[in-house]
């Protein structure tokens, strides 16, 4: 029984270590940072999952085995978030990104707003001013129409009186 447990755990641990080695080799093989992130994700998901599964089989007590399973579940949640943020950093800060990837800017997102204002504060101020103007104009027209309506009401009242 002891030997079966050891063999099970050792097999999982060794497969996990092999996938870690594959991930580290892949980080050196690829040419561009976003591709290297893909190789690093192997390490974060498959490598740590298999290693922790094997170690939880080998663990001395049931509580530590369950904690290792909890590490796997936490990594399932956190690794995609971390690589998403890392990829966003890469796309946002790389000036020559059009050489490596095709960018499709979706309308109405943050990137779309960045593209339209081009990061120029003067432009942003102008846009804000324009918005204020339009808002004022709308207010003006609204007030005008209100006064017009009031005057019309007065006229109507005057006629009736």
């Amino acid at each position: 029984m002891q030997i079966v447990r050891f063999v099970f755990g050792a097999v999982f641990l060794i497969i996990g270590l092999l996938s870690c080695i594959v991930g580290v080799i892949g980080v050196f093989k690829f040419k561009y940072a976003a591709n290297r992130m893909h190789a690093a994700a192997i390490n974060d998901t498959l490598g740590i999952s298999l290693c922790m599964l094997g170690l939880s089989v080998l663990a001395p007590d049931i509580a530590s085995a369950l904690k290792m399973i909890l590490v796997i579940i936490f990594f399932w949640i956190s690794a995609p978030v971390a690589s998403h943020l890392l990829c966003r950093l890469e796309v946002e800060t790389n000036e020559e990104r059009e050489q490596y990837m095709e960018l499709h800017v979706i309308e109405g997102t943050e990137a779309d707003a960045d593209k339209n204002t081009a990061g120029a504060p003067e432009m942003e101020e102008k846009v804000e001013e324009a918005e204020n103007e339009t808002a004022d104009g709308q207010k003006m027209t609204a007030e005008a129409s209100d006064t017009q309506i009031a005057s019309m009401d007065n006229m109507v009242k005057g006629e009736t009186a």
Partner: peptide, 16 residues
Amino acid sequence: SDRIMAVNMVSTLTII
């Protein structure tokens, strides 16, 4: 981003 990715990998290996 390469450096941050390497830090992430080192911490993953540390957990193992």
